[in-house]
Amino acid sequence: MDFDDAYSNSAYIDGADEYPDRWDDAAHDFRSLENAFGRARLNLRYGEGSREVFDLFYPASGKPEGLAVFVHGGYWMAFDNKSWSHLAAGAVARGWAVAIPSYTLAPEARISGITGQIARAIEAAAKCIQGPIVLTGHSAGGHLVARMRCADVALAVADRVQRIMPISPLSDLRPLLQTKMNETLRMDMAEAKAESPLLCKGLRDIPTHVWVGANERPAFLDQARWLADGWPDTQLTIAPDRHHFDVIGDLAEPDSEMVKALLV
Rank of each mutant, 00 (worst) to 15 (best):
M1L: 04
Y12V: 03
A16M: 12
R22Y: 10
D24F: 04
H28C: 09
N35H: 13
G38Q: 05
A40S: 11
L42W: 11
Y46I: 05
R51Q: 15
F54H: 11
F57C: 06
P59V: 00
K63I: 01
G74L: 01
M77S: 15
M77T: 13
A78S: 10
D80H: 10
W84E: 08
S85H: 15
S85R: 09
S85T: 00
L87Q: 04
A88W: 05
G90Q: 14
A91N: 07
A93P: 14
A97P: 01
V98G: 02
A99W: 03
T104W: 06
A106M: 02
A109E: 07
I114C: 08
I118D: 06
I118M: 07
A119V: 10
A119N: 13
R120I: 05
I122Q: 04
E123Y: 14
K127S: 09
Q130T: 03
I133T: 06
V134N: 04
A140E: 08
G142W: 12
G142D: 03
V145R: 08
A146Y: 01
D152W: 12
Q162V: 04
R163P: 10
R163S: 14
M165K: 08
M165W: 06
D172P: 09
R174K: 02
Q178I: 02
N182C: 07
E183L: 15
R186F: 01
M189K: 11
A194D: 11
E195P: 04
R204H: 04
D205V: 05
I206Y: 12
G213M: 07
G213D: 07
A219D: 08
F220D: 00
F220W: 13
L221T: 07
L221F: 06
W226A: 10
G230S: 08
G230F: 02
P232C: 05
P232Q: 05
D233T: 05
T234F: 06
T234M: 05
T237Q: 12
A239N: 09
A239T: 04
P240A: 14
V247W: 03
D250W: 10
A252E: 06
V259P: 03
